[in-house]
Nucleic acid binder design. Structure first.
Lengths: 131, 131
DNA sequence: ACCTCATATTCCCTTAACGGAATATGAATG
DNA sequence: CATTCATATTCCGTTAAGGGAATATGAGGT
C-alpha cells in the first residue's frame, strides 16, 4: 500500500470518523450513517473510497453490508491507524461518536462482545424499522 | 492543530518528500528544489502550503529562505512525523532523496553537523552558481 | 412475481488542488 | 541605482473531491 494513498484516505473528517468507529468493530452502513448524522450518499461514497483504497472490506449479511477494517492490515496502515487512535482519543467529536455508537447498538444488538464475533446477527440485528 | 489539517498536508507525495528532507535539518528552497528535481513554482507552493498549515517555519538568511520543521511541534504532529519517518525509512524514493541531499550538501556546506546549527552559512553556502 | 429495505451509482454543481508561464518582490552586489 | 539571484505570487487550465437528488441494484419478505 502506498503511503500517500493512506494519507489521502485520512485527509477527510468524515472518513476519520468512519475509521474511528470501525476501530471498535465491524459495522453496517446504516449504523454509521446514524451516528455520523450524514446523508446516505456521503457515507456510502466515503466507505466506497476507503474500500477501493484497501483500508476496509465489505461483506453482505442479509440485506446489510458490513464494513470492517482490513485484516490483516499492512504494516504502514497499522502504524497509522494506531497513531490516529492515539490522537482521536483526546478529541471530543470522536469520543462523542463512540458514545453515540454504543448507545445506538444497545437497542439493536444482543449483549456481549461485538468485534470479532462470527454471527452476523451480532453485527446487525435491527429491532426498529427505519423512519 | 487539527488532525485533518495534518493529513491534508501529508496527502501529497511532493510534500512528503519535502518533510522527509526537512527532518534531517533546516534547508533552503533551492536545495529542496534540486533534490526533488521539480519546478520552482511547485516546490515554493508546497512549502507555502506547509507553512500556512503550521508544519514548517521559514526565515530569511541573506538571499535565501530557510525552511525548517516547526519547533516545538504540537503532540499530534510529532506523533505523525515519527510515524511517517518509520515508514519512509523503507521506501526507496525517500532514501534516494536523502542520499541526493547529502551529496548536494557536500559541495555546498562546510563539514560538521548541520541541523540545529546557529550559523546561517552552515545551512546554505552556495559554492557554484545556478545553471 | 411484486414490494420494501439497505446500499450503491449516476448526474450535476461547487470548490479546491496541482503545475507551469509569466511576473513581482526583496536582498545583495557591483 | 541597476542588476542579479532566490523565492513568492498571479493567472490559467486541468483534474479531482465532496455532497445532494434521483435512480439503480440486489436481497428478503409477502
Amino acid at each position: 500500500m502506498r503511503l500517500v494513498e493512506i494519507y489521502q484516505c485520512l485527509c477527510d473528517e468524515t472518513r476519520l470518523r468512519l475509521l474511528n468507529l470501525l476501530q471498535t468493530g465491524p459495522l453496517c452502513v446504516c449504523h454509521l450513517q446514524e451516528v455520523l448524522d450524514m446523508g446516505q450518499v456521503a457515507v456510502s461514497k466515503h466507505l466506497g473510497y476507503l474500500r477501493r483504497h484497501g483500508l476496509v472490506t465489505a461483506t453482505r449479511e442479509g440485506k446489510w453490508r458490513i464494513y470492517r477494517l482490513v485484516d490483516p492490515a499492512p504494516p504502514e496502515l497499522r502504524r497509522h491507524l494506531a497513531c490516529l487512535q492515539d490522537c482521536t482519543r483526546e478529541i471530543p467529536l470522536f469520543c462523542e461518536d463512540q458514545r453515540r455508537l454504543a448507545a445506538r447498538l444497545q437497542d439493536c444488538c444482543p449483549p456481549g462482545p461485538r468485534a470479532g464475533t462470527r454471527e452476523p446477527s451480532a453485527i446487525h440485528f435491527r429491532t426498529k424499522p427505519n423512519p
